[in-house]
């Protein structure tokens, strides 16, 4: 907080200038998505397209049209359910697993950790038919749980390793002290380690959210019914046999980013808290 009130040095303004320059390049594709959503595509399909929206033809009509003619709200809601379900389950499972991999390093543990990563080396496209078999025989096609569960299975190998990395960063002397105080292992984990892991938890949670939010293969295969479509399947539906509704697709694409952007903003305090945990460690 004190940094906010401190007087800005020229160096700080320099850093801001650099940040803006870097963001301009990195975010150009997003900017161009916005442009495509507000400018009719025929005006962009020329050898010298306008780089800022022309005042006379730019409009947000595409957004209104998409909101009116497509159930974007429903798609976003379905995606939100899948994403939250996946991320919450993954984070619990992978905190336990990551702690175990970090603190107990027997040969068998190592092998299992490696097997986890190994399981992710087969492309999803090869696994998708058997995955479909499983859920079809369980009568779980068009069921949100099927997509949540398979996303958990796809995410957990990564998030477990990620959590392990964060647990590694916490000196084990801290738990030792707690356990000497008579805490059991699980209570130590919950009361001592988890609070220190907040930046790690936030990072891992975000990671799981991003994977689940972006999932297209599982969602389109396991929930083909349009009332169960997630936002990614919805976006793909703008690509037709004979034409692509570019402005609609980009408008939906922009709307699909908003929930994740909100997540990033919420994440911010957790990352700052990381500083606190770091000083505890020091």
């Amino acid at each position: 907080m004190s940094t906010l009130t401190r007087k800005r040095t020229p160096q700080q303004w320099g850093l801001l200038a650099i940040s803006i320059a870097v963001l301009t390049v990195l975010l150009f594709p997003v900017y161009w998505m916005v442009m495509t959503s507000v400018v009719p595509s025929r005006e962009l399909l020329t050898s010298s397209p306008p780089l800022v929206p022309p005042a006379d033809s730019a409009s947000f009509d595409a957004y209104g049209e998409v909101l009116e003619s497509r159930p974007i709200g429903l798609w976003l809601w379905n995606s939100t359910l899948v994403t939250l379900g996946t991320a919450l389950i993954s984070i619990v499972i992978s905190t336990l697993g990551g702690y175990s991999l970090s603190r107990f390093r027997t040969k068998a543990q190592q092998a299992m950790g490696f097997t986890l990563l190994f399981s992710r080396m087969l492309p999803g496209t090869l696994l998708i038919i058997p995955v479909f078999v499983i859920f079809a025989s369980a009568g779980m096609i068009n069921n949100l749980w099927s997509v949540i569960l398979v996303n958990v299975a796809a995410t957990v190998p990564f998030t477990t390793w990620l959590m392990k990395g964060f647990v590694d960063g916490i000196p084990s002397e801290i738990e030792e002290a707690a356990m000497i105080d008579g805490c059991g292992r699980l209570r130590t984990l919950w009361q001592v380690i988890v609070p220190l892991l907040r930046p790690g938890l936030a990072t891992t949670f975000t990671y799981a959210c991003i994977l689940a939010w972006g999932d297209f293969l599982f969602a389109r295969t396991l929930m083909p019914n349009p009332s169960d479509w997630t936002i990614t399947v919805g976006i793909a539906s703008f690509i037709g046999e004979f034409s692509v509704d570019w402005s609609g697709l980009m408008a939906a694409g922009i709307m699909s980013m908003v929930p994740m952007l909100i997540l990033f903003v919420f994440l911010e305090p957790f990352l700052v808290k990381g500083m606190a945990s770091g000083s505890v460690k020091g």
């Binding site: 594709p29 997003v30 998505m33 703008f238 690509i239 980009m250 694409g253």
Partner: peptide, 17 residues
């Protein structure tokens, strides 16, 4: 958060864009 924005774009939309 803006620096992380590309991450928020689903792969389907990235490919189309």
């Amino acid at each position: 958060p803006l620096a992380l924005l590309p991450w928020a774009v689903p792969g389907v939309a990235v490919a189309a864009a």
